[in-house]
Design a binder for these strands. Structure first.
Lengths: 248, 248
DNA sequence: ATAAAATCGGAACCGGCAACCCGTTTCGAT
DNA sequence: ATCGAAACGGGTTGCCGGTTCCGATTTTAT
């Protein structure tokens, strides 16, 4: 009787489960990993069930939703990354360690669409898992900067963006093109040295230049109180008409 | 009688159409631009019809498929980029022009999901349109390299990847973070100067290191004739089991 | 061995969307 | 003003994929 749809203590799974259930759970997880790795979250759930050799019902017995399954499938990889970063935080040569670590993470992630999507943070891998990775990486970054191996104006936000950018760059290179070219390029961009461009500072909470919501053109910073959203009267009217239509 | 489902001469549309048809076509195109801009190809077609104030049937009268509509909606922007690049090809200061152009393209594309997807080449914007852009950009790159403003080991492939990477990087920055930081970083990585890393050369058509198809670990270059796909016997067996299951 | 409980499997359900179709409306030539 | 053809629009169809449900099956405790 009692609750039937509780199931799935996502963390410690092996305890107190019937033997077949334990086995099936592992099969599902394995199948999910390989399917998600190839197709990302887009992988159909039926396909995962088929690969695991179970019915879709069984999948739902163990994981309350597709997304929960996804989390379970990728989070351990991310945790592994995090742990590694934490260990490396006390290494001797922070600069070299930083670059090697970054390259390794990228190399190990590129081929794994699920991991890419998870790192991109479109959905939390698991509450905290992604955040922990970010913080561990921040430590490596900071130490590399202290060792003067990474330019000081780069923030952890920049680095996370750069990481994802590298993933998307490396990802769309066909076979026959060297893996890692973009990563190498990105690493070079982090190195201190003779620089031509200053990184644009984050806006001082004031207004800054934006894009016209209709035509994409440049909008001059507003002089009046309300934020300027359109590049001119024509686009503003167009937007109003559109909204009116939307309400109707 | 005759062909009813021909419709949509995608290029010169205004000729020989009834006045209401011409107007509706423009409305649909405009609505498509704005919807795709926000949501990319994922924007539902019904939503586009709604915004245009027409029925879905009308959309299909003018464009044979959703993708054709998408092409029509974005290709003119790309053509604009291409034309601009061609004009700039004869500019005096190839280095500065190159960097300015690159930044501008990124700035004008980031907020436009449709344009991003089109440039990423997941589907041709229009046969040739995307290719033309690439070639025009290649000219700018080459001239900048001749002027010693861009490192010589960067190829047009690298640049295209870098462009898309910048897009994906800038895209996922929330408001309150300066636009263009990643672009600036990327531009710096292109500049010649004291470099620490060599870009990995494209593989000499020989084998190179790959990843294990199961666990993602490193696979040593194969010594035998057949390509090594797994990092060890365990993973190989796992893969075989999986395939067997897939067949059944 | 037996029965209760847990688990399994896959058919059925449901929502969302692209694409199609056809009765109705509008245009514009005469 | 009239009429035929062109265009409209939204209801309908087909498909896909996530989720649920329940009868059948397996495990485990006694």
């Amino acid at each position: 009787m009692a609750e039937r749809r509780l199931s799935s203590l996502p963390s410690q799974a092996s305890a107190s489960l019937r033997s077949d259930a334990r086995r099936n759970r592992a099969l599902v997880l394995q199948a999910a990993r390989s399917a998600f790795e190839e197709a990302g979250l887009g992988a159909p759930l039926g396909e995962i069930a088929r690969r695991a050799g179970v019915g879709t019902g069984t999948v739902y017995r163990h994981f309350p939703s597709k997304e929960a399954l996804f989390r379970a499938a990728v989070s351990d990889r991310i945790v592994l990354f995090t742990d590694t970063a934490r260990e490396l935080a006390h290494a001797d040569d922070p600069g070299a360690v930083f670059y090697r670590y970054l390259s390794a993470v990228i190399r190990l992630t590129v081929r794994n669409k699920a991991l890419c999507e998870a790192l991109e943070g479109r959905f939390e891998a698991s509450p905290g898992v992604e955040e922990a990775f970010r913080e561990a990486l921040a430590v490596l970054l900071q130490r590399a900067q202290q060792a003067d191996a990474v330019r000081k104006d780069v923030t952890i936000d920049d680095l996370m963006a750069l990481l994802m950018g590298c993933l998307s760059m490396e990802q769309r290179r066909g076979p026959g093109v060297a893996q890692g070219r973009m990563t190498a390029l990105a690493c070079d961009s982090l190195r201190p040295g003779r620089r031509v461009t200053k990184l644009p500072a984050n806006p001082p909470a004031g207004r800054n230049e934006t894009q016209c919501g209709v035509c994409g053109g440049v909008v001059a910073p507003a002089r009046t109180g309300r934020p300027a959203r359109y590049c001119g009267a024509a686009c503003r009217q167009k937007a109003h008409r559109e909204r009116a239509r939307a309400r109707a």
